[in-house]
Design a protein around this nucleic acid. Structure first.
Lengths: 213, 213, 213, 213
DNA sequence: TATGAATGAGTGTTCATTCAT
DNA sequence: GATGAATGAACACTCATTCAT
């Protein structure tokens, strides 16, 4: 993902500062590794520098503070994640298919980029600046992709009419998140997560489709 | 809960000096407030001391380190929570009733003791000692209460036979947790959480009961 | 002077925190030595700690910042200097005698406490906080002791009626200060300064007494 | 003064590349502004670069270190000041006239180039290299212009025979310096300094001429 | 037991200086 | 020469923990 993100950024910025972006991306990549391994607070900025192959001071040419590195990881990765997920979901015709795609994509992210996953879901909360000063709109936007599908499904009669998308989207996200978190934390093999994902889809679909009798 | 917990501990400790236990409990209560407010890392031990009405050094007569305070909060609170929840669920005859009770109890905890909730679900993860050296059996035990109900429901035919309790218990816990977390983080009014809880129960029951055809 | 100052403070504070004041005074004494030797900016806080026989962190129990140490030296020393000088000048009957006493006392300070002298006259200016946020009233108060004498001498006819105390007090202070500064900077023997002082008194008295024809 | 100085240097350097000298002079001019505003220690080399319109690295093509910029300001300005002052004093026939010219010229410098004045009199002392490794002969040379006049006046009977030029020259310089310093520090209007200068001349002349009766 | 003053290891950040372009 | 991105040494300050009282 790192490479893709960098490429995206390079293109987005019109290639003016190709070298800067490389280094910025390298630092973010290094930071993801270090933060995931040591935790945000226990990670030293000098560790990030070493992992990124730059000098300590160089970090501060690209980021104002340690906190900002963390926030930038989130921004940078979420930007890519949201774009990619929207693209994939748009291709699918049914609400049910979209919902399954969301779950599959989330699981894919977690297995492919466990460090990013850890940083975004665990470490990010340790930044005061992030939790307090920063409206974490990206998180909401992510969850809203489920909400949109739920509404779509309600409208076309696929899903029950009595579900509240605002609540259920979070329930689904939370279920996914918990499965992934435990998988990350316990460092289980990938197939365990894949089987869990299939169970989850079944559970979730039953939850939004089948009314209890 | 604090009072009850202290009482429980007093019993559990088999009659050690009552005053010691008061102080220990006071420190834990103070720590919960401070950790919830400032976050574990940004909280100073001296803040905990001040909030507890003891001297800085006194903390170390009851806890080996800052980390241990955090872990003790978890141990102490979870002990009470598990005992209480088991008692309540045991009283109910049906798996469905037990499942609903689990959700209601979790929500009740969150609304009654938001600080404890925050510390256990958010701050706890910031302790390396907890996440790495500590087998968080209590968390599993808590989730297993759902797992047991799910198995019970599968056995008596209430719930679908194809659900995997090991996965679904985590999905349900995750859904609950996410709803509560956002409620805590965004400091929403209590009734918002209560309505969400009712939606969640409907969603979860549909998920474990109704099979999609 | 350090001892006297400490004694004064102890008394002033009513002896409540005798130990604190000892340590505070020790730190100020250490800081005077270190600042005079290395210069304020080149002096490390840890140098001050070492010179004071305390740990680095202890410094911050008594002073908010490195800047505040510098300012406290000034406050602390000037308080004593002003009190002592006022007392001495009050004892003398004539304006001429008082003026001579001012010069003698200033020279005595410089020769007895060259480090304090250096810190107050040279290093103090390196503190942004001092120069900008701090109304250095003590300096003015010190110079005003000359101004008062000049007015007294004008009133009783000892000094010329056309001198402007507001200007001449600074001229006299500046002359004294320059002689002392060079003496400090060049580390000349004490007798050189004493001879200069006698010349200075003669020059100054001629300046304020004798009108040119 | 900046322009004149550059011209002087161009001549002095015997026709080196004019462009180099422009840049060197530009850097010194920028440094004077920045040092006067922020203080030597708080001023960043990059600030000087920005104020001079050159790149950070360019500074080091003309000066070995930040310290050397400061010293060069002094050298450069003093060279011009001394030459100019000598020329002016030489034109005057009497010791008294020369002494008055010295005061007037010093005051003129301070009012015309307050930044230079601040740097030379205040900031210069913050450079260890200057104060310790550098024999500040220029300062002495400057003061010696007063010393020479005093001797001249003693010889022709204008001034008292018992004055010691080595002491009195410093007293006069110190008096001048103090008046100017306070004027700079307090950012007073120019006319205040001019009035003070007239008082000072009267005081100084009385000091060197009139014997006390 | 309780205290809280003292400790000193630990680290984010700055900025003078260098050097590849 | 000129640039400015990169370097990395340096340091003020914090705070968990200790221990004399």
């Amino acid at each position: 993902m790192a490479t893709t993100t960098t490429a995206a950024r390079t293109v987005a910025s019109g290639g003016a500062h190709a070298r800067d972006l490389d280094k910025r991306a390298r630092i973010l990549d290094g930071a993801v590794k270090v933060f995931a391994k040591r935790g945000f607070f226990h990670a030293r900025v000098s560790d990030v520098a070493k992992a990124s192959g730059v000098a300590d001071g160089t970090i501060y040419l690209y980021f104002k503070s340690k906190d900002e590195i963390l926030i930038s990881i989130f921004e940078d990765r979420m930007e890519w994640i949201l774009a990619e997920l929207k693209k994939r979901m748009a291709k699918l015709p049914t609400a049910r298919g979209k919902l399954e795609e969301f779950v599959d994509f989330h699981i894919m992210l977690a297995t492919s980029y466990p460090d990013v996953c850890d940083v975004i879901t665990i470490e990010l909360r340790q930044s005061n600046k992030f939790m307090k000063e920063y409206a974490n709109t990206r998180f909401l936007e992510y969850q809203n992709l489920i909400g949109d599908v739920l509404r779509e499904g309600k409208d076309d009669g696929t899903f029950r009419s009595d579900i509240d998308p605002a609540v259920v989207k979070r329930a689904i996200f939370g279920a996914l998140h918990e499965l992934v978190s435990q998988w990350v934390l316990m460092k289980l093999p990938a197939n365990r997560l894949l089987r869990a994902a299939s169970q989850l889809k079944s559970f979730v679909l039953a939850g939004v489709v089948g009314g209890e009798k």
